Lab assay of single mutants.
Amino acid sequence: GGHPVTTQMVETVQNLAPNLHPEQIRYSLENTGSVEETVERYLRGDEFSFPP
Rank of each mutant, 00 (worst) to 15 (best):
G1R: 14
G1M: 13
G1F: 12
G1S: 13
G1H: 13
G2F: 14
G2P: 15
G2K: 15
G2D: 10
H3G: 10
H3N: 11
H3M: 10
H3Q: 10
H3L: 10
H3D: 09
H3I: 11
H3K: 11
P4N: 12
P4V: 15
P4Q: 14
P4M: 14
P4R: 15
P4A: 14
P4Y: 14
V5H: 03
V5G: 02
V5F: 09
V5Q: 02
V5P: 06
T6K: 04
T6Q: 04
T6Y: 06
T6P: 05
T6W: 07
T6M: 06
T7G: 09
T7L: 14
T7D: 15
T7F: 10
T7Q: 15
T7K: 14
T7H: 14
T7A: 15
T7V: 13
Q8G: 10
Q8H: 12
Q8S: 13
Q8K: 13
Q8M: 11
M9K: 01
M9H: 03
M9N: 04
M9Y: 02
M9A: 06
M9S: 04
V10K: 02
V10D: 00
V10H: 02
V10I: 15
V10E: 04
V10Y: 05
V10P: 00
V10R: 03
E11M: 13
E11W: 08
E11N: 12
T12S: 11
T12F: 15
T12D: 12
T12L: 15
T12R: 15
V13W: 00
V13C: 07
V13A: 06
V13P: 00
V13L: 04
V13K: 00
Q14D: 00
Q14C: 11
Q14R: 13
Q14I: 09
Q14T: 07
Q14L: 12
Q14E: 04
N15G: 13
N15P: 06
N15Y: 11
N15K: 15
N15I: 14
N15R: 15
L16T: 07
L16K: 08
L16C: 10
L16Q: 09
L16R: 11
L16H: 09
L16V: 12
A17N: 02
A17T: 08
A17Q: 02
A17H: 03
A17R: 02
P18N: 05
P18W: 05
P18E: 05
P18K: 09
P18L: 07
P18A: 07
P18R: 08
N19T: 13
N19A: 10
N19G: 14
L20V: 03
L20G: 00
L20C: 05
L20E: 01
L20R: 00
L20T: 01
L20F: 02
L20W: 02
H21N: 08
H21F: 07
H21V: 07
H21A: 10
H21S: 13
H21M: 08
H21T: 15
H21Y: 07
P22Q: 08
P22V: 14
P22T: 09
P22F: 09
P22L: 09
P22N: 05
P22G: 05
P22W: 11
P22S: 09
P22Y: 11
E23H: 09
E23Q: 11
E23M: 13
E23C: 15
Q24N: 01
Q24M: 05
Q24V: 03
Q24F: 01
Q24E: 05
I25R: 00
I25W: 00
I25C: 05
I25Q: 01
I25K: 02
R26Q: 08
R26T: 06
R26N: 04
R26F: 08
R26C: 10
R26P: 02
R26V: 08
Y27D: 07
Y27L: 12
Y27S: 08
Y27Q: 09
Y27N: 08
Y27I: 10
Y27V: 11
Y27A: 10
S28Q: 05
S28A: 11
S28H: 07
S28W: 08
S28V: 04
S28I: 05
S28C: 08
L29R: 00
L29I: 06
L29Q: 02
L29G: 03
L29C: 05
L29A: 01
E30Y: 09
E30A: 11
E30D: 05
E30M: 13
E30C: 10
E30H: 07
E30K: 06
E30L: 10
N31G: 10
N31V: 14
N31H: 14
N31Y: 13
N31Q: 15
N31A: 14
N31I: 15
N31S: 14
T32A: 06
T32Q: 02
T32D: 03
T32R: 00
T32F: 05
T32G: 07
T32S: 08
G33K: 06
G33Y: 06
G33P: 02
G33R: 07
G33W: 05
G33C: 07
S34P: 00
S34G: 04
S34V: 02
S34M: 02
S34L: 03
S34A: 04
S34D: 07
V35K: 00
V35I: 13
V35Q: 02
V35L: 08
V35F: 04
V35A: 06
V35N: 01
V35R: 00
E36K: 12
E36N: 09
E36Q: 13
E36I: 11
E37A: 11
E37Q: 10
E37W: 04
E37K: 12
T38E: 01
T38N: 00
T38P: 00
T38D: 01
V39M: 14
V39G: 01
V39K: 04
V39L: 14
V39T: 06
V39D: 01
E40L: 15
E40R: 15
E40I: 13
E40H: 12
E40C: 15
R41E: 03
R41Y: 05
R41F: 05
R41Q: 10
R41I: 08
R41C: 06
R41H: 09
R41W: 03
R41S: 10
Y42Q: 02
Y42T: 01
Y42W: 11
Y42K: 01
L43P: 02
L43I: 10
L43Y: 10
L43V: 09
L43K: 10
L43G: 04
L43T: 07
L43Q: 09
R44P: 02
R44T: 05
R44N: 10
R44H: 07
R44S: 08
R44C: 07
G45L: 01
G45F: 02
G45C: 04
G45H: 04
G45W: 00
G45T: 00
G45S: 02
G45V: 00
D46R: 02
D46K: 05
D46E: 15
D46C: 14
E47R: 08
E47S: 12
E47P: 11
E47Q: 12
E47F: 13
F48K: 01
F48S: 02
F48T: 01
F48G: 01
F48D: 01
F48A: 02
F48E: 01
S49C: 14
S49M: 14
S49R: 12
S49P: 15
S49I: 14
S49K: 13
S49V: 15
S49G: 11
S49N: 12
S49A: 15
F50D: 04
F50M: 07
F50V: 04
F50S: 04
F50A: 03
F50H: 04
F50E: 03
F50C: 10
F50K: 03
F50I: 04
P51N: 04
P51C: 04
P51L: 04
P51E: 04
P51D: 05
P51F: 06
P52K: 08
P52M: 08
P52F: 07
P52A: 09
P52I: 09
